[in-house]
Amino acid sequence: MIPAPFDYYRPNDMAGVLALLSEHGDDARVMAGGHSLIPMMKLRMADVPHLIDLQDVEGLSGITVADGSVRIGAMTTQAEIIDHAGLTQVAPIMKEAALQIADPQVRYMGTVGGNVANGDPGNDMPGLMQCLDAHFTLVGKDGERTVAARAFYEAAYMTARTDEEVLTAVTFRATSGGYAYEKQKRKIGDYATAAAAVLITKEGGTCTAASIAMTNLSDVPVFSADAGAALVGSSVDDEAIKAAKEAMLGDIDPSEDNRGPVAFKRHVAGVILARAITRAWSRA
């Protein structure tokens, strides 16, 4: 499996990256960990005449936690997310989700920026970013802008990022209350048949806020505001969980593939969401 030839660049600053992107336009692509892009290039499903490796670009990696907000540089790997005690303290759902992505080798290479920029509905971080109400920072030749994760995904592999922009960081508020990332997969290293990200706040036995998002159940990650709303004001009993499931099922749109027919995926989505809500509530 040999990819088509390409010219390789390894600039050490963003100005260098942006200059290459504007010089080569559509023919250029940035590469982070390469663990989505290289397999596609090997299959010749992605043709990248000019490959820009981001590994030496300064300021793109690292995790900062300050004043209740979290900033994760695009080149930060899943392994670094798992190992970062400060991040786990303020947003433990990140580690729980990262541990369910791929396998150890892939997690050393795969980055948060690549995972959210890729636009593959199977990626886990985009759904998680919906749940966290994260924002993505994009840099282009006209400067920097911020896009809400919930407004970023347009269709499979289509996002609000233009070809000439680079995603530099994801940011979100520290979480409080209960959390869970629950994923059904056929084997370790597989993408989700269904996954659910849940954050719940509890006050005196009552749910006061809930955020729910689903992965690989549509051509974009699904933030289900109605599913969260179905829990608010309840004691998260069976009835409330059933209502949240019903609301979520109204928002997803899975298609049949080698992970199963639509009816099966809808069934699994319901089971996974119920488990995630139950676990998040028990931690709230």
Binding site: H35, I38, P39, L51, D53, Q105, V106, Y108, M109
Partner: peptide
């Protein structure tokens, strides 16, 4: 497998376990 799944090609690269079928020599 040559498709990033089996780990038979695993090496240690700069302190990380890496599947060497999923890395360009340029990288």
């Amino acid at each position: 497998c040559e498709t990033s799944h089996c780990g038979a090609c695993t090496v240690t690269l700069n302190g990380k376990s890496v599947k060497s079928c999923t890395m360009f020599v340029a990288q």
